[in-house]
Amino acid sequence: MTLLLMAAGSGSRYGKLKQFDDLGPRGEFLMEFGISDALNNGFDHIVVITKEENQKFLDDHLRKRLPANIKLDVLVQKLTDLPHGTSFSGERQKPWGTAHAVWTARNVIDGPFAVINADDFYGQSAYKNAADFIRAHRNDNTFALVGYMLRDTLSTHGSVSRGVCQVEGDNLLSVDERLKLEPDGDKVKDLDSGNSYSGDEHVSMNFWICKPSIFEKIESEFRTFLADKELGMKSELYIPKTIQEMLQAGEIEVKVVPSEGDWFGVTYSSDRENAVAILQEKTEAGKYDSPLWK
């Protein structure tokens, strides 16, 4: 089983590259805890998508730590990585988005895989539930979202963006991207739209379980995207949007797999203290070895 980590962000609100911040008790990166949880649940292939200037460092860093039997691919998300026969002549500095990050791995993944953000902590049970789902659905085209409750994914230091999900039973119906969610008493308010939420809604934290069929869909969307010069200048391709289009076209089913664990992220620099404390506490409780890698 493959775990794909997206680590090509710039950390603009955090103030530095949070993917490489030494948050663990022995200076471990946050992504290393996710990788460890994945390996403990049967994942044996790690794919990391990063920037070109970080590729060698990250490849060296992880190869020194991962067991020898674990396959590792550290790939670069490039602005020049375009579908055959397409081109882009405008000026752009930001990556093409999370869907393009996933598409970057199209030549190294040929089976079911999980996708996560490298700068989020998802909880040990989330990886177990994801692995169980992959084993149960290895030969079909069913995707999944490992879901969290909105109220459990907020920051006390500023607004956050979340994909708010409509769910029926264990079936995902839709994902509505909300970009400025903040606590509002016992509710959650979206500052952009004015919408109010109870906080008990499922949200996407970009922990997806995908099949290789997504690569063809992303490429098709990317071709359409590049044909629109305005989109190509500043917009991005997002995983939830791609999966939702596949879902609405009847190409796939998408199940919601409960995480049954605790999530935290480091959106703002002020989130760092909390992250360090949680990882220290979990390590002292024996949930993680220290050092993490032997």
Rank of each mutant, 00 (worst) to 15 (best):
L23N: 00
T2E: 12
V164A: 00
A68T: 13
A130C: 11
S290D: 15
W103S: 12
G15T: 11
I49W: 09
K217F: 00
E260N: 14
D184M: 03
G90A: 08
H202E: 09
G199P: 08
D176N: 14
L75E: 03
L172P: 05
G163W: 01
L30F: 04
Y127C: 05
N107W: 05
E168I: 02
V175P: 01
F121Y: 14
L181F: 01
S269K: 15
G169L: 10
D132I: 11
G194M: 00
A118Y: 09
L231I: 01
V257G: 04
A227G: 15
S204A: 05
E251L: 12
M1W: 02
L17G: 05
N206Q: 10
S125H: 12
M246R: 01
D228P: 04
F222N: 02
D192R: 08
A38F: 02
P83G: 09
I252K: 10
V254D: 03
G169A: 05
E168V: 12
F264H: 12
P67I: 08
K16S: 14
L72T: 09
G123H: 03
A118W: 02
G97R: 03
A227E: 13
V175M: 14
D120L: 13
V164M: 05
D132T: 13
K78G: 01
D37M: 15
P183F: 03
G163Y: 07
P183E: 11
E28N: 07
D262W: 06
V188R: 02
D152H: 15
S235G: 02
K234T: 12
M6L: 15
K56T: 13
D119A: 06
